[in-house]
Design a protein around this nucleic acid. Sequence first.
DNA 1: TCTGAACACTGTACAGAGTACAACGTCCAC
DNA 2: GTGGACGTTGTACTCTGTACAGTGTTCAGA
Lengths: 240, 240
Amino acid sequence: MQLLWRDPAAVPRHGPRQGLTIDQVVAAATALADAEGLAAVTMRRVAAGLGVVPTALYTYVPGKAELLDLMLDAAYARMPRTGTDGQPWRQRVAAVAAENRALFETHPWAAAVSTVRPPLGPGLMAKYEHELSALDGLGLTDVELDAALTHLLTFVQAWARAAADTRAARRESAVDDGQWWAAHAPLLARVLDPRAYPLAVRAGTAAGTAHGSAYSPEHAYDFGLRAILDGFAALIGGRG
Amino acid sequence: MQLLWRDPAAVPRHGPRQGLTIDQVVAAATALADAEGLAAVTMRRVAAGLGVVPTALYTYVPGKAELLDLMLDAAYARMPRTGTDGQPWRQRVAAVAAENRALFETHPWAAAVSTVRPPLGPGLMAKYEHELSALDGLGLTDVELDAALTHLLTFVQAWARAAADTRAARRESAVDDGQWWAAHAPLLARVLDPRAYPLAVRAGTAAGTAHGSAYSPEHAYDFGLRAILDGFAALIGGRG
DNA sequence: TCTGAACACTGTACAGAGTACAACGTCCAC
DNA sequence: GTGGACGTTGTACTCTGTACAGTGTTCAGA
């Protein structure tokens, strides 16, 4: 908490000066995560990138978990915030979703870090304030405001995780979808009996041929966002 | 794949008989995950529970990832499936959500394992077939059917992850919400200026006092499920 | 019935993770 | 000037997944 807000009360008076700053540590870790994924962010590698021994980082940060918190709050702080005053509410909410989607596209690791007991820092606060403003003025109660935003953000994060997993699976399996299908076709043909699973085979085939693969992040995002907007519309409209 | 379907073509003819079965291995790993969480599922501990050396497991399973796939498919297969024929569609869909919620409550680890390129085994197929049937007959296209189910399941899984994280945070932080709040109150009061973050402070306070904590899984589930059902209603109704 | 290949299982080993701990050197307040 | 506080380092520990060589067991074919 003190770290997140860069509390001046936490800086010591005695001793040698620190050779680095917290922001340098956070920036190095973020660069590593952007380039090679969250798994590459080890204390050893972050330290090596800064020309320092691993345990030296522990004077800047109590542990790895706190470092991740700082990375996330800093990423929140850097998010571009679109001005959508005067636009219809559906566009405003869609813009919030798009901003979060963009965050997860520039920082795929951000979708993977846990967000409960979130990093209550300046970046998150600014983000929260901005996103609430997009939902304000629709006649929702404060509690509904918070719940609606939480619902929207949960969706975008879950989608981003799925999309990232899809990319990762595609990359690391070294076989593309066609080869994978070809390799498993004999067993699947024997086992996926349309008589045993009529709906599943029908819907699965339809989705697969429509999207070109079993799961299409693009289609899932469009469908999900539309469903959420319709759900909000019912909540607003139901009030008259 | 062959493992998931217990393909008889994969059993060898020569050599000594195996002292265990795949199902025993999967059951031991599942019991461990249920009791102590996914992090406790290490090859060493699973092996120890079976009275065997860690590397012996590699004759049953190519690696840890495949073991998790098997655990998940087995859990899917064991899910109780409610019969909801004849009920209104909102109840049918709510029942699907409740079944998945129950899965994540008996097996919290299931929410944490990645589900893209999912374990295409008998358990998943039976689950998929059953859940599609709850959404069938509403006039949706096959592609919409799949997308709607994916959307619903994504929500329940994301919710379950958040709920599990909430429980974990509560447990391991050793301080309850009141103590945490008291410890950080001075800094927060200095830093959370209502003039800087008017909406955030207002909505955050409202949500916090309404639920007794910053995030209420129960409320998030009710709100989210309702929003999703309303979204589906718009999709169905918009067709006439 | 005997033999060789196939296989299950064991023990050892390795690289890499987070971080605790003691030692060393630098700087400020008195 | 000096004592104590602090930054940084090197070493070490436990734990992870799993590769690899070795040992013993079992079955198919001669």
